[in-house]
Amino acid sequence: MLIPCPYCGERGADEFTVIGAADPMRPEPDAPMEAWVEYVHVRDNAFGPHRELWHHVHGCRQWLVVTRDTRTHAVHGAEAARR
């Protein structure tokens, strides 16, 4: 699989680690316990395009949001996670 790193170009997936969904947002500090449980443990099991967090750990060490189709592994884009 190839990941189009916005800093390094297309690189093999073995240079990266992936931790899963990019969209769960860390709750505000005063959010209830349930919001934190949701943030840490509950994930959609995406079937189709999926935004996920990849780390170019053997490259530029930037965290990326990669949009990948979980059915085909087609990568629709990658952008820096820092917004």
Partner: peptide, 8 residues
């Protein structure tokens, strides 16, 4: 640390 900085 990189995650906490870049993402959070």
């Amino acid at each position: 640390l990189e995650f906490c900085h870049q993402v959070l």
